[in-house]
């Protein structure tokens, strides 16, 4: 929501998609917004030996 609110044009097209019941287009907006602020931006792994 933060990322869409920061981008009025994208928010407008997301709202338009929602009102048109176009779930696929709305989902594209959501996934694109998540790229700017992923919930979990770092993936952790443990190296089992020196690399």
């Amino acid at each position: 929501m933060d990322e869409l609110l920061n981008r009025p044009d994208a928010l407008a097209t997301a709202q338009k998609a929602a009102r048109a019941d176009d779930d696929a287009l709305l989902a594209q907006h959501c996934w694109e917004a998540l790229r700017f602020n992923p919930f979990n931006p770092v993936l952790y792994r443990r190296a089992t030996h020196d690399t």
Binding site: L43, Y44, T48
Partner: peptide, 26 residues
Amino acid sequence: NTGTAVVTRRADVVDVLNRNADFEVV
């Protein structure tokens, strides 16, 4: 752990994620 390595380039990240035996889930 004894330290942290920050891997930033896509090819390296994919490499780490694909090498399960070398880089375990935590």
